[in-house]
């Protein structure tokens, strides 16, 4: 395994401008923006799985979409295999089209991410068509068959001429995975791949993803709000709150010994396998603040159970706790 990261984000920002009326523009009101991703840095090693967890609206999906170029980044750098992601290929840059051949995204909703008027064969073969690979009929059929069978749809021919509406949610997600696999990508970005599925099917899909990762050595960014699937799946965890990573570390470290008060609160309310082991629950007060007007100082302070005066003023940076573990809290900086 090479030590260089397959994917690196440096100070990544993605802002969405709030539409302004001509009157507001005329009055020179400042242009407001939703700070969906606000300074995120991380590195993903080859073969590694990084889970990004956080509640709704914390910017996890925006990160995924920015990484694959579906949203334009406002600031910062994305490096894929040591090369900066740009519009076109260059000496030190990798073009979007090339990136999208080597990195694939799995979307959250398998009911929406398949074209209802395309057959399963066409859906799985589409990446090959787009990138002009496997041009011959026989070659293409072979690639699609392998991808479908690797995704657990056997026998593959049985599914070729079917439409998405004829399949169940779990089968559809397998089709999505097959179409992501057909190009043999090095990186898989999975945006809540199991959250729309029945609990009984979740484990199957997660097992499938884990097997594929081991078999093919694919690196995975796994985005979820469900901490119980994370422990099972990820090597490392990054906890996000309002567009920023507040804690990042090995799965074991973060789950056993959470340092940020937000992580502690999240973990305390995650369902435990043994209900007799009652833990003290930290219930967060209030709602997530508006990402247009972020709170001053530490963005978590209005809801933090252990906040003190300084928190309203000073914005904490990630503090190194161990070689692999970092968290952003003023209590840790001292």
């Amino acid at each position: 395994m090479t030590p260089n990261p397959i994917l690196e984000a440096r100070e990544l920002h993605t802002y969405f401008l709030v539409p302004q009326s001509p009157f507001e523009a005329l009055m020179r009101r400042p242009h407001l923006s939703v700070k969906a991703v606000d300074g995120v840095s991380f590195a993903l090693m080859r073969g590694e799985t990084l889970a990004i967890v956080g509640e709704s609206g914390c910017g996890k999906t925006t990160i995924a979409r920015t990484l694959i170029g579906l949203e334009a980044k406002t600031k910062g750098e994305i490096l894929f295999d040591g090369k900066e992601v740009a519009l076109r290929d260059g000496q030190t840059a990798i073009g979007l089209k090339h990136l999208r051949q080597r990195a694939q995204m799995i979307f959250q909703d398998p009911y929406e991410s398949l074209n209802p008027r395309a057959t399963i064969f066409d859906i799985v073969a589409e990446p090959l068509v787009v990138h002009g690979l496997a041009k011959g009929e026989r070659e293409r059929t072979a690639a699609v068959t392998t991808a479908l069978e690797d995704a657990g749809l056997r026998p593959a021919e049985h599914y070729f001429m079917r439409y998405p509406y004829e399949l169940s949610g779990g089968q559809r997600q397998r089709v999505v995975i097959a179409s992501a696999l057909v190009l043999q990508p090095e990186l898989l970005i999975a945006d809540e791949p199991v959250s729309m599925l029945d609990v009984s099917i979740r484990a199957e899909i997660l097992n499938l993803l884990r097997d594929l990762r081991q078999k093919r050595g694919i690196s995975v960014i796994f985005i979820t709000h469900d901490l119980s699937t994370v422990a099972y799946f990820a090597d490392r965890i990054a906890v996000m709150y309002l567009g920023r990573i507040v804690e990042i570390g090995l799965t074991r470290e973060v789950l056993r010994d959470p340092q940020h008060p937000y992580t502690k609160a999240l973990l305390s309310v995650a369902p435990a396998p043994n209900p007799r082991l009652r833990r003290k629950r930290v219930i967060l007060q209030g709602e997530t603040p508006n990402p247009i007007n972020l709170p001053s100082g530490c963005r978590f302070h209005p809801r933090c159970p252990v906040a003190f005066d300084q928190c309203k003023i000073k914005d904490p940076q990630l503090t190194v706790l161990s070689e692999t573990h970092q968290a952003a809290c003023l209590l840790l900086e001292k």
């Binding site: 979409r65 694959i68 170029g69 579906l70 979007l96 089209k97 999208r100 051949q101 694939q104 995204m105 979307f107 909703d109 929406e112 991410s113 398949l114 074209n115 209802p116 589409e126 990446p127 068509v129 787009v130 990138h131 999505v176 179409s179």
Partner: peptide, 16 residues
């Protein structure tokens, strides 16, 4: 719709 986003994420061009 999401399947259009997916097509873009695959690298498909406008015409496709």
């Amino acid at each position: 719709r999401q399947f259009v986003a997916r097509a873009r994420a695959i690298g498909a061009g406008h015409w496709h």
